[in-house]
């Protein structure tokens, strides 16, 4: 495992919508696409569920716990100082 990011890294979730291109299985919630967060911890490396779901050969990918400002994501209902903590695979993250 060779993680590209470390705790404290500012990251951006890719604003990508593979479900609009055809059948897929993804673990990145829609509400975080294109949103910025901060790596809380490296969780390990796991086989890519996007391939496992279709019984394709699946490489391992680094999984992170990424923290987001909750009212920043849901301004109408959210409240400071709340946070969202979500598992995101490395191939969904860019340096922010």
């Amino acid at each position: 495992m060779n993680p590209r990011f470390s705790p404290g890294s500012r990251v951006l979730v890719k604003n990508d919508w593979p479900e609009e291109r055809g059948p897929c299985h993804i673990r990145t919630p829609h509400y975080l696409r294109g949103r910025a967060g901060e790596v809380e911890r490296v969780l390990g490396a796991f086989r890519n569920p996007e391939d496992l779901a279709f019984a394709r050969p699946a490489e391992t990918r680094v999984l992170y716990h990424v923290m987001f400002d909750q009212p920043g994501i849901f301004p109408a209902d959210g409240k400071q100082p709340d946070k969202l903590l979500v598992e995101i695979f490395e191939h969904w993250l860019e340096a922010a």
């Binding site: 569920p49 999984l63 849901f74 209902d77 709340d82 946070k83 903590l85 995101i88």
Partner: peptide, 27 residues
């Protein structure tokens, strides 16, 4: 609206407590 959900369950969260919603999305 995690605070509204907590309040409805009978466990309101104080304003100065950070509520972390952990979305279990992967492994």
């Amino acid at each position: 609206e995690p605070r509204a959900v907590m309040a409805e369950w009978g466990s309101p969260v104080a304003d100065d407590v950070e509520l972390r919603v952990v979305d279990s999305t992967a492994d």
